[in-house]
Design a binder for these strands. Structure first.
Length: 426
DNA sequence: AGCCTTTGACCAGCG
DNA sequence: TCGCTGGTCAAAGGC
């Protein structure tokens, strides 16, 4: 069951000799940006970003003494004015092409983004930086900040990946709805979720292409995928076609709780993809985290937040994301639609998302048109963004039969950057 | 003892 | 109808 069919031949769009970020994101051309051009576009230059304040810049230069979360907080707190303008422009222009951070993101799941080890998904969302999202990295972070941020993770080990479309779309909406500032100060998931709901109301259209996915990738041991505070029981495991990674099936052990999740991980067990299905109809077990060694205070605080937020089934960690996306997709209200594997509002023409697993792929296909495939012939000095890059690895990205290249900066800690091939326009 | 994981078998949807 | 595939069941075993 593992013999994988050879990847189908795909049309490719060769990397143009030169493409400026401007032309790339003007929405007028078909030029495909190289990975670093994209990176540069995602992370505004220092000159630009420094105008936003020295907090983040200091953090980047002194990354060793600054926590990742702090980095995030600092960088998010003061988005440079020009970025705000960009955000507005993005808001007008739509998700797909208008702005750097979003336009380059594949329709679904391409917003890959790493988190330093030791920061569990739970902790990740617990932190004030919970609003961190790939797109936001582009919004509020200077190039250096982003560099430091990614460097921080690169210098650590397991690759933690976040990969869920709702973040991209969420950010897109946030920019146009002026919610970004709120996001910067959001203190808990409840706020975030509420915000998401509001955004969902205002920017519904922006989510149509990406709303469905509850996917994201986290590193997780095989046995304990993404400790999110709930208790899960594994009830199955399969190797799905097109992926070398086994997929595990988990159910929430709470009686009558319909929530399930599918977890995929790489051979090394470092990268997981978690797909939630359903919605918890109960409180998160109170002592789970304490048992796991997390602080009781955090637990209590979190419970408090839960209560205050009035969100019963939606919680932080993955659940927060999950719940948010549900709200974004207009599902969370009222009863769970059946097994509600987050059916996009209606998404009629979609096979009722029967295969959430392929949301990334299907979204790409459903979404569009824009097919950006970065094809390179050289492994060295791909782009002239001022940094030297060398390819240090290549791997097959789940959901994409074609390998994603990874690059490292030529100097200092390596930066990982994945080239995502955006399906679409033939 | 209870809960969990493992894993082969079974079922259902789809082309 | 058949084969493929994803999802689920459930017995067995481990912790």
């Amino acid at each position: 069951m593992s013999a994988r069919p050879p990847p189908p031949p795909r049309p490719r769009l060769s990397l143009p000799p030169r493409s400026t970020g401007e032309s790339l994101f003007s929405g007028t051309g078909d030029a495909s940006p190289g990975p670093l051009t994209l990176a540069s576009a995602l992370f505004p230059s220092d000159a630009d970003a420094d105008a936003g304040g020295g907090g983040g810049g200091g953090a980047s230069s002194g990354a060793g003494a600054t926590s990742f979360t702090q980095l995030l907080i600092g960088s998010l707190s003061q988005p440079p004015p020009h970025q705000q303008q960009q955000q507005q422009e993005r808001g007008r222009g739509g998700v797909a092409r208008a702005g750097p951070a979003l336009s380059v993101a594949p329709p679904a799941g391409a917003a890959v983004f790493t988190v330093p080890p030791g920061l569990s998904p739970s902790g990740f969302f617990d932190s004030p930086g919970l609003i961190f999202s790939p797109a936001m990295g582009g919004f509020g972070m200077s190039h250096q900040q982003a560099l430091a941020q990614v460097t921080a993770q690169a210098s650590h080990s397991p690759l933690r990946m976040f990969d869920h479309t709702e973040q991209t779309s969420f950010s897109a909406a946030a920019t146009s709805s002026g919610a970004l500032q709120n996001m910067s100060s959001a203190a808990n998931v409840a706020e975030m979720s509420e915000m998401a709901t509001t955004i969902s109301n205002n920017e519904h259209a922006a989510f149509q292409s990406a709303e469905a996915s509850h996917r994201y990738q986290v590193p997780a041991p095989v046995d304990k995928p993404a400790d999110d505070g709930y208790n899960w029981r594994k009830y199955g495991q399969k190797v799905v076609k097109g992926s070398d990674c086994p997929r595990s099936y988990y159910k929430c052990t709470h009686p009558s709780c319909p929530v399930k999740k599918k977890v995929e991980h790489a051979e090394d067990g470092q990268i997981s993809e978690i797909i939630y299905k359903g919605k918890h109809n109960h409180q998160r077990p109170p002592n789970k985290r304490a048992k796991d060694g997390s602080s009781l205070a955090a637990e209590q605080n979190e419970q408090s937040n839960d209560t205050a937020s009035g969100l019963s089934g939606v919680r932080r960690d993955q659940e927060a994301v999950y719940g948010m996306s549900e709200q974004l997709s207009g599902l969370s209200d009222g009863d769970d639609k059946d097994d509600g594997e987050s059916r996009p509002n209606e998404a009629d023409d979609r096979e009722s998302d029967c295969k959430r697993r392929n949301i990334q792929i299907s979204s790409q296909k459903a979404l569009t048109e824009s097919k950006i495939i970065v094809q390179t012939t050289s492994e060295v000095d791909l782009l002239d963004d001022g940094y030297r890059w060398r390819k240090y690895g290549q791997k097959v990205v789940k959901g994409n039969p074609h390998p994603s290249d990874q690059f490292g900066s030529g100097v200092g800690p390596y930066i990982r950057w994945s080239i995502f091939r955006i399906e679409g326009r033939g």
